[in-house]
C-alpha cells in the first residue's frame, strides 16, 4: 500500500468542519472587515463632530441621535425617498417593457440588418454618460419635460436599454427552439409563442436585468444632477449628494454619515428580504 492511497483514504475521515476550516477563516476575514466597515459608518453617525475624527472604531462617548434628525430634516430625505421610489420603479418597469420584446426579436427573428441593429444597441453600453449632459437639456426642454421626474425617467429608460438588451438577447438566443416549434405546430401565432412560451422561459433573465437596473438606477446621481434642479424634484442620491457637499464645507462629518446611514439601512433591509428572490432569479437568469 503506497502513501498516497493511505492519504486518499484518510482524508474523507476528517470531520467536515475541519476540512472546511480554511474556508471559514478566509470568508470570515472578509466578512468581518465588511461588517466593521458598515458599522464604522453607522457609528460615525452617532458621534460629535470632534470625536468622529479621532476615535476610529471606538463606540461613541455620547450618542448624538440628533445627527439623524438634522440629516433627515435638512436633507429632506423623506420626500426624496418617495421621488426615488417613483422614478426608479416606473423606469425599471418601462425598461423591461420595451427591452424584452426588442431583445426577443433581435435574438430569434430572421431579418436583414439584425446584426447591425444589435450592435447599435450594444454600442450604447460604451458611451460615457457625461456626453449626454449638453444635448439632453435641449431635448427635454423641447419635450417640455426639463426639470421633471418624468423627463428623468425617460432618460433612465433610454440609457438602460443597451445593457438590458445585451443581457436579454444572449438569454433568448440560448433558449431551445424545440418548444417554439411545438407551439407553432399547436397553432400559436408568433405573438402567442412569445407571450406563452418564450417569455415564461425568459423570466429569470428578465429578473436579472431588473435587479441590475434597480441597483444602478437607485444610486444614479450624475445625470440626475444635470436634469433636476428644483429641490422638491430631487431623488435620494441627489439629496445625499447635496447633504454631503454641505457637510464637507462645514466639517459636519457625523451629519454626512447620518445621511448615508438613513439611506443605506432601508436598502440593506430591502436587499436582505429580496436577495433570496433576486438571486434565485439570477441563478437561472444570467446562467440560463
Amino acid at each position: 500500500m503506497t502513501d498516497t492511497t493511505v492519504a486518499a483514504r484518510r482524508q474523507p475521515r476528517l470531520p467536515g468542519w475541519v476540512r472546511r476550516l480554511p474556508a471559514y477563516i478566509l470568508v470570515w476575514a472578509w466578512t468581518a472587515f465588511t461588517l466593521a466597515a458598515i458599522l464604522y459608518v453607522v457609528m460615525s453617525a452617532l458621534k460629535t463632530k470632534r470625536e468622529v475624527l479621532r476615535s476610529g472604531w471606538n463606540l461613541p462617548q455620547e450618542w448624538v441621535w440628533s445627527n439623524f434628525a438634522t440629516a433627515w430634516t435638512v436633507g429632506r430625505l423623506g420626500e426624496y425617498f418617495i421621488n426615488s421610489l417613483l422614478v426608479v420603479g416606473v423606469s425599471v418597469f418601462a425598461i423591461l417593457l420595451v427591452s424584452t420584446p426588442a431583445a426577443y426579436v433581435l435574438a430569434r427573428a430572421r431579418f436583414r440588418g439584425r446584426e447591425t441593429l444589435t450592435n447599435l444597441f450594444v454600442i450604447g453600453m460604451g458611451i460615457p454618460i457625461p456626453m449626454l449632459f449638453i444635448p439632453i437639456f435641449g431635448i427635454l426642454s423641447y419635450l417640455r419635460l426639463s426639470d421633471s421626474l418624468t423627463g428623468l425617467s425617460l432618460v433612465f429608460i433610454a440609457i438602460s436599454i443597451p445593457v438590458t438588451i445585451y443581457l436579454l438577447t444572449g438569454f433568448f438566443a440560448s433558449l431551445p427552439s424545440e418548444l417554439e416549434a411545438a407551439a407553432v405546430l399547436e397553432g400559436c401565432n408568433d405573438f402567442q409563442v412569445f407571450w406563452h412560451v418564450m417569455l415564461p422561459l425568459a423570466m429569470p433573465g428578465v429578473l436579472t436585468a431588473l435587479i441590475l437596473n434597480l441597483i444602478w438606477l437607485w444610486n444614479e446621481y450624475q445625470l440626475s444632477l444635470v436634469i433636476l434642479n428644483s429641490p422638491q424634484n430631487r431623488t435620494l442620491p441627489l439629496g445625499l449628494y447635496s447633504l454631503q457637499n454641505a457637510m464637507q464645507y462645514t466639517g459636519d462629518w457625523p451629519g454626512m454619515f447620518a445621511g448615508v446611514t438613513i439611506v443605506i439601512i432601508p436598502t440593506i433591509i430591502a436587499y436582505a428580504l429580496l436577495s433570496e428572490k433576486m438571486i434565485a432569479g439570477m441563478t437561472m437568469g444570467a446562467v440560463k
Binding site: 427591452s99 426588442a102 456626453m131 449626454l132 432618460v155 433610454a158
Partner: peptide, 24 residues
C-alpha cells in the same frame, strides 16, 4: 411583430441616448 417589438426601444434609445450623444 418585428417592427412592433423593436419600435419602442429603438425610438427611446435612438432619440434620447444614441443620436444625441453621437451628435456631440
Amino acid at each position: 411583430l418585428i417592427v412592433l417589438f423593436l419600435a419602442p426601444a429603438s425610438l427611446l434609445y435612438g432619440g434620447l441616448f444614441l443620436l444625441p450623444t453621437l451628435s456631440t
